[in-house]
């Protein structure tokens, strides 16, 4: 058995190994793990506009809808760069994994509409964290940025987060679960929040923008890589960041422009009509020590404390703005 699979493995992995990049001729291949969400629009824009090719890079994205394989795949060497939410990244760092921020990706907006929203059933009279005590709130995953921002809102609005039961419900099923009464509230991210209000509008309502009410404009996700890879190939990641940032500029110049929505539709497959009602995040280039510290501090309040290295030491020079 092992022999057969090992042989199959060798045969299949031999292809990429057999073609090392020739300096000045072939592009350096960089495998990037992403999630099909609006947050990664700048990466796709830079790919489409040839900004990576101009830097001698060939970006090969691996899209995983759930996003569960991103960071483990980075540790295993399957990816060189991973798009992930700040909490998952920091939890890995707390466990001793050498993740380093190479670029910012997405943050909340300073004013509505924002990218996270808390929805409840109309008539359920749940308007605050206090009302949710003893009830069930859905998050796509526990212990990620969505859950953290949701719990911060529960606390801010007078509730005890320990008395609120978190139920893990994938985003696509959240609206149905809420409308059917299986949960009492849901922490939605875009485009699922606006999608739920369109499809279930007569039964669901938005009661909060959790990020705006607890830490307006706070960070959500970044691009990370491994420390050793950065030390050995720092210049490759400088090229990656330069290409990416041109994509960020392009996206920021076209917020809600049809060209941007077409781009997002192409990689996420979300219909354009739905994207027109979707709030896009803020697309930062840099990662600041202050924003990382904010997440670490908030995590400690919700049972995810621990010893972390100084935030500044986690940020590679490309993300210094």
């Amino acid at each position: 058995m092992t022999q057969i699979t090992r042989r199959a493995g060798l045969a299949l992995t031999a292809l990429p190994l057999a073609a090392p990049p020739l300096v000045g001729q072939t592009l350096t291949r960089l495998r990037v793990s992403v999630i099909p969400v609006t947050d990664v629009a700048p990466l796709h824009a830079a790919m489409r506009l040839g900004h990576f090719a101009a830097e001698g890079l060939e970006i090969d994205t691996s899209t995983t809808a759930g996003g569960a394989t991103g960071l483990p795949g980075l540790v295993a060497g399957q990816f060189r760069v991973v798009f992930s939410n700040t909490v998952s990244i920091l939890l890995g760092i707390r466990e001793g994994l050498d993740f380093r921020f190479v670029a910012g990706a997405a943050a909340g907006n300073p004013a509505p509409p924002d990218i996270f929203a808390i929805l409840t059933r109309k008539g359920s009279n749940i308007r605050s964290g206090r009302d949710l005590e003893g009830k069930r709130i859905a998050s796509n995953t526990r212990n990620n940025i969505v859950w953290l921002r949701g719990m911060a809102w529960v606390e801010k609005t007078g509730g005890d987060w320990r008395k609120v039961t978190t139920v893990e419900v994938p985003f696509p099923q959240m609206a149905d679960a809420l409308a059917a009464g299986q949960i009492d509230a849901g922490i939605f991210s875009e485009p699922f929040a606006s999608g739920a209000l369109v499809s279930h509008g007569e039964r669901l309502e938005r009661v909060a923008w959790p990020i705006i009410e607890t830490a307006p404009g706070a960070t959500v996700a970044q691009y990370v890589t491994m420390k050793d890879d950065l030390e050995r190939n720092g210049e490759v990641f400088e090229r990656f960041a330069r290409g990416l940032f041109k994509g960020v500029d392009w996206v920021n110049e076209r917020r809600h422009d049809p060209a941007l929505l077409d781009l997002i539709t192409a990689f996420s497959r979300v219909p354009v009509e739905r994207l027109r009602q979707t709030a896009l995040p803020t697309y930062p280039k840099a990662v600041t020590p202050a924003e990382v510290q904010e997440v670490i501090t908030t995590m400690a309040r919700f049972g995810m404390g621990g010893r972390f290295p100084a935030p500044a030491s986690l940020i590679f020079r490309t993300a210094n703005g």
Partner: peptide, 20 residues
């Protein structure tokens, strides 16, 4: 469905997340 960007399984999950 769990990993990678290949085949019918990935397509199914992508469509689910795209609300289609």
């Amino acid at each position: 469905m769990i990993a990678g960007e290949q085949g019918v399984g990935h397509y199914l999950v992508l469509m689910q997340f795209a609300g289609r």
